[in-house]
C-alpha cells in the first residue's frame, strides 16, 4: 500500500506541471494590459515600463515561464497588485475558511448521500426510493446560490437559528466557528447529497445485477450480507471516482456560497481581484485551486487502492 501511495504521488507531479503550464499560458493570452489596468489610461509610458519591469513582464516569455515555475515551486506566488502584500499571505489568510467549507460539505454529501442512494437502490421503486430521488433531484436542480439564499431567508432571518453573515472567527473559538460554518456548509452539502445519492443509487443498482451477487445468493447468505458485504464494496468504487470529480464542482459553487454569506474565503478574493484586475492574485488563486484539485484526485486514487484490490496489485 505504501509503494502504491508513493507511485500515485509521483504520478501526480507531471500533472501538476502540466496544469501550471496551462495556467501560465492562459493568464498571458487574456486580452488587456495589466499595467494599464492597474495604472489607468493616463499613466505615462515611463511609469508603465517601470511597472512592467517590476512585475517581470518585460522579459521574453520563456524567461517569464522559468521564473514563474521556479517561484511557484518555492511557494512564491508574487505580490498582489492591489494590496502590495504577498499573494501567499493573502491566500493563506482565507484558505482555511474555504477548505473547511468544502470539506464539511463533502462530509455532509457523503454521510447523507451514500446511505440515501444505497437504500434507494435496495428499495427500488418503493416509497423510500421515490422520496430519496425527489430529495436528490432538489439538490441537483437548484443552483448553489439559490439554496444559500433560501436557507438564509428562513433559517437565519426568519427563525434566527444561524448567523446571517459569517466573519473571521479565530480557531481558538471552535464552537462559534462551527456555528458560522453550519449554514453555508449545509447549502453546499445539499447539492453534494444530490450528486452523491444519484451516483450511489445507480452504482448500487448496477452492482446488484452482477453475476457475483447471484453467486452470493446461491450460498444462502442472509440478505444483508449479500447487499452490504458483496454489493456495497463494489458499488463504492464508482462512488469514490465521482465524488472526487464533484470536488471541482464544489469549489466552483463555494465561490457563490461564500459571497452570499459574505464569508471570508477564496470566493471573496476572486471577486475582489477580478474587480481590481489583480492579475498576480488571480494567477495565484488559480494555482491554489489547481493544487487542491490535483490533491483531491490523488486522494481519490489512493482510496481506490483501499477498496479495489485490482488497482493495488496491477501496479
Amino acid at each position: 500500500m505504501l509503494v502504491f501511495t508513493l507511485k500515485r504521488l509521483l504520478a501526480s507531479i507531471p500533472t501538476l506541471f502540466a496544469v501550471l503550464t496551462v495556467i501560465f499560458v492562459l493568464v498571458r493570452i487574456v486580452p488587456g494590459d495589466p499595467a494599464l489596468a492597474v495604472l489607468g489610461d493616463s499613466a505615462s509610458e515611463e511609469v508603465i515600463q517601470e511597472f512592467r519591469k517590476s512585475i517581470g513582464i518585460d522579459k521574453p516569455l520563456w524567461e517569464q515561464y522559468l521564473v514563474f515555475m521556479g517561484d511557484v515551486l518555492q511557494g512564491n506566488l508574487g505580490l498582489s497588485m492591489a494590496t502590495g502584500k504577498t499573494v501567499v499571505e493573502e491566500v493563506s489568510n482565507v484558505l482555511p475558511y474555504t477548505l473547511e467549507l468544502t470539506v464539511a460539505s463533502i462530509i455532509i454529501g457523503v454521510v447523507f448521500g451514500i446511505p440515501l442512494g444505497i437504500f434507494s437502490a435496495i428499495y427500488r421503486n418503493h416509497f423510500f426510493d421515490y422520496l430519496a430521488r425527489m430529495v436528490s433531484l432538489l439538490g441537483l436542480s437548484f443552483p448553489a446560490f439559490y439554496i444559500s439564499i433560501l436557507f438564509m431567508i428562513y433559517l437565519s432571518v426568519e427563525w434566527d437559528w444561524f448567523p446571517v453573515f459569517s466573519e473571521y472567527i479565530p480557531w481558538s473559538d471552535p464552537l462559534t466557528r462551527l456555528y458560522h460554518l453550519a449554514l453555508p456548509a449545509l447549502s453546499l452539502g445539499v447539492i453534494m447529497i444530490g450528486y452523491v445519492a444519484r451516483t450511489s443509487r445507480s452504482s448500487m443498482l448496477e452492482v446488484l445485477g452482477e453475476d457475483y451477487i447471484r453467486t452470493a445468493k446461491s450460498k444462502g447468505l442472509p440478505r444483508n450480507m449479500v447487499v452490504f458485504k458483496h454489493g456495497f464494496r463494489n458499488a463504492l468504487i464508482p462512488i469514490l471516482t465521482l465524488t472526487g470529480l464533484y470536488l471541482g464542482l464544489l469549489m466552483g459553487n463555494s465561490v457563490l456560497t461564500e459571497i452570499v454569506f459574505n464569508r471570508p474565503g477564496l470566493g471573496g478574493l476572486i471577486v475582489g481581484s477580478l474587480e481590481s484586475r489583480d492579475y498576480t492574485m488571480l494567477q495565484g488563486l488559480i494555482v491554489t485551486y489547481a493544487f487542491f484539485i490535483v490533491l483531491a484526485n490523488l486522494i481519490t486514487d489512493i482510496s481506490y487502492g483501499l477498496v479495489d484490490p485490482r488497482v493495488k496489485n496491477n501496479d
Binding site: 457475483y212 452470493a216 458483496h230 463494489n234 479495489d308
Partner: peptide, 10 residues
C-alpha cells in the same frame, strides 16, 4: 460464467 461469478473485491 466463471469470469464474472466471483466477487472481485473479496
Amino acid at each position: 460464467e466463471p469470469m464474472t461469478s466471483l466477487n472481485p473485491v473479496l
